[in-house]
């Protein structure tokens, strides 16, 4: 019991005297997850729009696959990316394994189905009367689609935030493809895993608390957007 308390008090003093190492770890986490999120959002948004507005063969199957991938364990994605990037793998010549780029690739794959699938759900959730209204007011088909996406904007933001929550919290994929190299590929979750292993609870706890705070902020934002996206009774 006392060791836990001691751990916490040391963790807080660590947080107060933010050292460079801690700062670097946090910044790398944000950079890797932020970039992965950006890339996956840029790819997922057009896909979710196409899924929402176009009919094509196997569309339903495609959406099911996307939904399935939402729940894919990060370690499996880590393994997959590892095999791709390892020296004997198809992309081995690029020498990306154990670099932040490899981590970004893994987390992009991790975030993509979430952002795409939840954005698609947000677009599908827009009241069909919106399509009608835009059309009758003289909108071209493209303008109608943009109007529907705009109506889904809070749902889409919630999708992006959910994706961020997933990649910030995961450890399996980046541990495998990043290797947890100090000062280079070490991020918050991998540090916690390593330091706990070593018995250095203060640093692990300090980062754990910071991660918790980030997660709290993410959830508050999620809640705000979900509330804003709720339609009034008189649409």
């Amino acid at each position: 019991m006392s060791s836990i308390l001691e751990g916490f008090s040391q963790a807080f003093s660590l947080m107060l005297h933010f050292n460079d190492e801690l700062m670097g770890i946090i910044l790398l986490s944000l950079k890797v997850s932020g970039t992965a999120l950006l890339v996956s959002t840029v790819m997922a948004l057009p896909l979710s729009a196409i899924l929402g507005f176009r009919q094509f063969p196997f569309r339903g199957a495609f959406i099911s696959i996307l939904n399935t991938f939402m729940g894919l364990p990060p370690v499996v994605i880590g393994l997959f990316v590892y095999l791709l990037l390892s020296r004997s793998g198809p992309l081995g010549f690029m020498a990306l394994l154990y670099t932040p780029t490899a981590m970004i690739i893994a987390q992009t794959i991790l975030a993509f189905p979430i952002v795409a699938s939840l954005s698609h759900a947000a677009i599908m959730g827009v009241d069909p009367v919106i399509r009608y209204a835009a059309t009758t007011l003289g909108a071209t088909p493209l303008q109608v689609s943009l109007t529907i996406i705009n109506e889904a904007r809070y749902g889409i933001m919630a999708a992006v935030i959910a994706g961020f929550g997933r990649v910030m919290a995961e450890v399996g994929a980046i541990l495998i493809v990043g290797g947890n190299i100090a000062g280079f590929t070490r991020v918050m979750t991998t540090t916690i895993a390593l330091e706990t292993d070593k018995g250095n609870f203060e640093l692990a706890l300090a980062i754990g608390v910071i991660l918790l705070l980030i997660s709290l902020i993410v959830n508050v934002l999620l809640h705000v957007f979900q509330k804003k996206g709720m339609t009034g009774a008189n649409r």
């Binding site: 009241d127 009367v129 919106i130 209204a133 009758t136 705009n150 109506e151 008189n234 649409r235």
Partner: peptide, 10 residues
């Protein structure tokens, strides 16, 4: 055409 359901934008 104005619909019976207003269909207003958010």
């Amino acid at each position: 055409l104005v619909l019976p359901k207003a269909g207003l934008f958010n």
